[in-house]
Amino acid sequence: GKMTGIVKWFNADKGFGFITPDDGSKDVFVHFSAIQNDGYKSLDEGQKVSFTIESGAKGPAAGNVTSL
């Protein structure tokens, strides 16, 4: 299901970062391709987001990332 969290950091040049889930679980990798907006796909440190957990090739990653 949907989770919420805070963006820990995001490197716009490399197109990835990490989200710290509100439930205290392990930080989740986020790739820019998972960001659900029409414009420039980037996130800001400290931004609140909702997301799902998808299993990627390198382990769990955030999917369906939407800013709240």
Rank of each mutant, 00 (worst) to 15 (best):
G1P: 08
G1A: 09
G1V: 08
G1W: 05
G1M: 09
K2G: 11
K2V: 15
K2F: 15
K2T: 15
K2H: 13
K2M: 15
M3T: 11
M3V: 12
M3C: 06
T4K: 08
G5H: 00
G5W: 01
G5L: 01
I6L: 09
I6D: 03
I6M: 10
I6R: 12
V7K: 00
V7C: 04
V7M: 03
V7N: 00
V7I: 09
V7T: 04
K8M: 04
K8I: 06
K8H: 11
K8F: 04
K8A: 08
K8E: 02
K8C: 07
W9K: 04
W9V: 04
W9G: 02
W9H: 04
W9D: 02
W9M: 06
W9N: 03
W9L: 04
F10V: 04
F10M: 02
F10Y: 12
F10H: 01
N11R: 11
N11Q: 07
N11K: 10
A12C: 07
A12T: 15
D13I: 14
D13A: 15
D13G: 12
D13N: 12
D13R: 15
D13T: 15
D13M: 14
K14E: 06
K14T: 06
K14S: 08
K14L: 13
G15W: 02
G15S: 03
G15I: 02
G15N: 03
G15A: 03
F16G: 02
F16Q: 03
F16C: 04
F16S: 02
G17H: 00
G17N: 00
G17I: 01
F18T: 03
F18G: 02
F18L: 04
F18Q: 03
F18N: 02
F18W: 10
F18A: 04
I19R: 00
I19M: 02
I19L: 08
I19V: 04
I19F: 02
I19H: 00
T20Q: 12
P21F: 04
P21K: 03
P21W: 04
P21S: 05
P21L: 08
D22W: 06
D22M: 10
D22E: 08
D22V: 08
D22R: 04
D22Q: 07
D23R: 04
D23K: 06
D23G: 09
D23S: 08
D23L: 07
G24F: 08
G24R: 08
G24Q: 08
G24C: 06
G24A: 08
G24L: 07
G24P: 03
G24Y: 06
S25I: 07
S25D: 09
S25M: 09
S25T: 14
S25K: 09
K26T: 14
K26A: 14
K26M: 11
K26F: 10
K26I: 12
D27G: 04
D27Q: 07
D27P: 08
D27V: 05
D27M: 06
V28F: 05
V28K: 03
V28R: 02
V28C: 04
V28T: 03
V28D: 00
V28Q: 02
F29W: 07
F29I: 03
V30D: 00
V30L: 09
V30T: 03
H31A: 04
H31F: 11
H31V: 03
H31Q: 04
H31P: 03
H31N: 03
F32Y: 14
F32I: 12
F32N: 07
F32K: 13
F32W: 14
S33F: 05
S33G: 08
S33K: 10
S33P: 03
S33A: 09
S33R: 11
S33C: 05
A34V: 11
A34N: 09
A34Q: 11
A34I: 04
A34S: 12
I35H: 03
I35K: 02
I35L: 10
I35G: 02
I35F: 07
I35D: 02
Q36N: 12
Q36W: 08
Q36F: 09
Q36Y: 07
N37H: 14
N37Y: 12
N37R: 10
D38N: 12
G39V: 09
G39L: 11
G39F: 07
G39K: 13
G39A: 09
G39Y: 10
Y40L: 12
Y40T: 12
Y40H: 14
Y40N: 13
Y40W: 15
Y40I: 12
K41L: 10
K41I: 07
K41Q: 11
K41W: 08
K41Y: 07
S42G: 13
S42T: 15
S42C: 09
S42V: 15
S42L: 12
S42E: 08
L43A: 02
L43V: 05
L43K: 01
L43Y: 03
L43C: 03
L43M: 05
D44A: 13
D44Y: 15
D44F: 14
D44C: 10
E45C: 08
E45S: 14
E45V: 14
E45G: 12
E45H: 14
G46Y: 06
G46M: 05
G46K: 05
G46S: 05
G46Q: 05
G46E: 04
Q47F: 05
Q47P: 01
Q47A: 12
K48Q: 09
K48T: 08
V49E: 00
V49I: 05
V49F: 01
V49C: 04
V49Q: 01
S50Y: 09
S50A: 12
S50C: 07
F51R: 00
F51S: 00
F51A: 01
F51N: 00
F51W: 02
F51E: 00
F51T: 00
F51P: 00
T52E: 13
T52D: 12
T52M: 09
T52P: 01
I53C: 05
I53R: 07
I53P: 05
I53D: 02
I53F: 08
I53W: 07
I53S: 04
E54H: 07
S55T: 14
S55Y: 12
S55Q: 14
S55V: 15
G56S: 15
G56W: 08
G56M: 11
G56N: 13
A57R: 14
A57I: 14
A57H: 15
A57Y: 12
K58D: 11
K58P: 09
K58I: 09
K58M: 13
K58T: 12
G59Y: 08
G59E: 04
G59V: 04
G59F: 08
G59P: 07
G59K: 07
P60S: 08
P60M: 13
P60L: 14
P60G: 06
P60H: 10
P60I: 14
P60R: 12
A61H: 15
A62V: 03
A62M: 01
A62R: 01
A62L: 02
A62K: 01
A62I: 02
A62F: 01
G63C: 06
G63L: 12
G63Y: 10
N64W: 09
N64L: 10
N64T: 08
V65H: 01
V65E: 01
V65S: 01
V65G: 01
V65L: 05
V65M: 02
V65Y: 00
V65R: 01
V65T: 02
V65Q: 01
T66H: 11
T66I: 13
T66G: 06
T66R: 07
T66L: 09
T66A: 10
S67W: 11
L68P: 07
L68N: 10
L68C: 06
L68W: 05
L68A: 10
